[in-house]
Design a protein around this nucleic acid. Structure first.
Length: 420
RNA sequence: GAGCCCAUAGCUCAGUUGGUUAGAGCGCCAGGUUGUGGCCCUGGAGGCCGUGGGUUCAAUUCCCAUUGGGCUCCCCA
C-alpha cells in the first residue's frame, strides 16, 4: 500500500468491531467468574521498573534475557510488563496488602509485551487474564486457583484441553534434584544440544523441556523431580492431587513440566489444547512461595495462574465455539426533514434511558438510504418520522424482521419496546 | 538468531511464450421506487499491480535488493 501510511508495530494488532464483541464477551465471563470465586480485580501499570521483572521473573529466563521491551528516561528504567505476577507481587508489597488481613485473592486482565517473532498464537502485545492467591501455602489454595482457571474454560465451552500437573519442589528439593540431574547429564554433556549445554550449569531443569531431538533420548531416562521432593513437598503435592480427584478435575501428571519462569515452587501446571497449532499452551501457573520475599516483602506463600486470551480465542475458533453475539441496535430512528431530525435527537434519549439501544442517521440521507442502513445494522425495529407523523402524533413503528408496521403514539412505542 | 511462503481495488482473488485504456465476485455510493430495507436491474466511486533498482523498444509479468505480512524452529500466553 502507500508507503507513508502509519500502521501498527510488528506483532501488535487492532481489535476492531466484529472482533471486539468477542473480547467483551470473554472478559465478561472472566469478571463474572471472578465474582463467583470472590477474587478482586487489580490493575497495575503497564510499565514497571526493569529491575522488578529481572529479579522477579529471573535473569536467566528467556523473557528477561531476550524478550523485554525496555527504555530509559532520565534516571529511570522502564519495561513493558511481560507478565503480571511480579507486578502484582510488587503491588502487594508496596501497598502492604498483607496488613489487610487474611489472604489476598486478586485477578487481572490486560496486555503483556514480549519482543519475540510473532507467529500464530504469539504476538508482541498479547492479553492475559490471571489470578493470584497470596498468603496461603495450603493445597486448597493451589486447587482454588486451578479450578478458577478451569471454570472459565468450562463456561466458554472449550473442549480438548489437558491440565498437566507437576511439583517442582522447594529450594531444598530442587537443589538435590539439580545435583542429581547434573550428575546424570554430565557424562553426555557434549552430546546435548547447544542450548542444553548452556543450561547445564545455570538451570539444568530447563533441559527437561527441551524439544531438541538430540536431548530427547537422554531426557527420557533422566531422574525425575518426583523422586527428589522433600517430605513436605511430597505431601503437599499429594494433597493437591487428592483434592483435584475429589473435585473431579482431570489432570495428567507430567514430571518434565518445568515452566520457563524462575519463581515457581512446588505446584506447577499448564493447560494445553490440541486446537492451537504449535503454540499449544492456553495458560499455566503454579506456586511461587519465594517471590514476595524476592521483591522485598516478608516471606509469603502464594499461588497463581495466567492465561492467554488470544489463544483461548484461537482454540474456540477452530472448534466453532461462538463467543457471544453481535451487537445489533434495538431501534433505528429514520427521519425526513429538519423538524423530524430535531424531534428524533430528543426522542432517542427517552428510548435509551429505558436501557434499549437506539441509533439513527447522522448524515441526512434519503429514507431509502436510512432503511438500508437500518437493515445493514440489523436493527430490530425502525421508527419513521416525517412531517405527517409530527402533525398527527402517530409514528411509523416498523418491525424489520417481520416487515410489518403500524402507526402508534410515541408513548405506545416506548411501551412496546420495553416489553419486546 | 535461523528457515520457508506471500505481496494486484475496502475484502477474497483472476490476470505470461513481457505489449498499448488492469479485471471479477463481494462490499460501498446512487438511480430504477420524489416516505420504506432485504431480491432483481442499471450506473458510479475506488488501483502509480508493496517500495527501489536492473534487463528490455516495452515490466503487474523476468532478475536483484528492500520493506511489510504469514508460518515454522527455539521458548512461551
Amino acid at each position: 500500500m502507500a508507503q507513508n501510511r502509519f500502521q501498527t508495530h510488528h506483532g501488535m494488532k487492532d481489535i476492531l468491531p466484529g472482533e471486539s464483541e468477542k473480547w467483551r464477551y470473554v472478559e465478561d465471563i472472566i469478571k463474572k467468574t471472578a465474582r463467583e470465586f470472590h477474587f478482586s480485580e487489580i490493575r497495575t501499570p503497564v510499565l514497571e521498573q526493569t529491575e522488578l521483572i529481572a529479579r522477579g521473573v529471573g535473569q536467566l529466563t528467556d523473557i528477561v534475557s531476550k524478550e523485554m521491551f525496555t527504555f530509559e528516561r532520565g534516571e529511570d528504567n522502564y519495561v513493558l510488563r511481560p507478565e503480571c505476577t511480579a507486578p502484582v507481587a510488587r503491588a502487594f508489597v508496596e501497598h502492604h496488602l498483607d496488613q489487610r488481613g487474611g489472604v489476598q485473592k486478586l485477578f487481572y486482565i490486560g496486555p503483556m509485551f514480549r519482543a519475540e517473532r510473532p507467529q500464530k498464537g504469539r504476538q508482541r502485545q498479547f492479553h492475559q487474564f490471571g489470578a493470584e492467591l497470596i498468603g496461603s501455602s495450603d493445597p486448597i489454595a493451589d486447587v482454588e486457583i486451578i479450578r478458577f482457571m478451569m471454570r472459565i474454560y468450562e463456561k466458554i465451552g472449550l473442549k480438548n484441553i489437558t491440565l498437566q500437573l507437576n511439583s517442582v519442589g522447594n529450594p531444598e528439593s530442587r537443589n538435590n534434584y539439580r545435583e542429581a540431574l547434573q550428575n546424570y547429564f554430565r557424562p553426555h554433556l557434549n552430546e546435548l544440544s547447544e542450548v542444553s549445554q548452556a543450561r547445564f550449569e545455570t538451570n539444568p531443569m530447563r533441559i527437561l523441556d527441551s524439544k531438541e531431538d538430540e536431548d530427547q533420548k537422554w531426557v527420557a531416562d533422566a531422574p525425575l523431580i518426583t523422586d527428589y521432593l522433600s517430605e513436605e513437598c511430597q505431601s503437599h503435592y499429594a494433597e493437591v492431587k487428592r483434592l483435584l480427584n475429589e473435585l473431579g478435575i482431570p489432570y495428567t501428571e507430567n514430571p518434565l513440566l518445568v515452566r520457563g519462569l524462575d519463581y515457581y515452587t512446588r505446584t506447577a501446571f499448564e493447560l494445553t489444547s490440541t486446537d492451537l497449532g504449535s503454540q499449544d499452551a492456553l495458560g499455566g501457573g503454579g506456586r511461587y512461595d519465594l517471590l514476595i520475599e524476592e521483591v522485598g516483602g516478608k516471606p509469603t506463600p502464594a499461588v497463581g495462574f495466567a492465561s492467554g486470551i488470544e489463544r483461548l480465542m484461537i482454540a474456540c475458533e477452530s472448534l466453532d465455539i461462538p463467543l457471544g453475539e453481535n451487537d445489533f441496535p434495538d431501534v433505528y430512528i429514520i427521519t425526513r426533514g429538519d423538524k423530524a431530525r430535531n424531534w428524533a435527537v430528543k426522542a432517542i434519549d427517552q428510548i435509551r434511558n429505558t436501557g434499549i439501544s437506539a441509533t439513527m442517521d447522522y448524515s441526512g440521507r434519503s429514507i431509502k438510504a436510512q432503511m438500508k442502513d437500518a437493515n445493514r445494522q440489523e436493527a430490530t425495529y425502525a421508527v419513521i418520522v416525517g412531517d405527517s407523523e409530527l402533525e398527527t402524533g402517530l409514528f411509523t413503528f416498523r418491525n424489520m424482521k417481520e416487515s410489518e408496521e403500524e402507526l402508534l403514539p410515541f408513548e405506545k412505542i416506548l411501551q412496546k419496546l420495553i416489553h419486546a
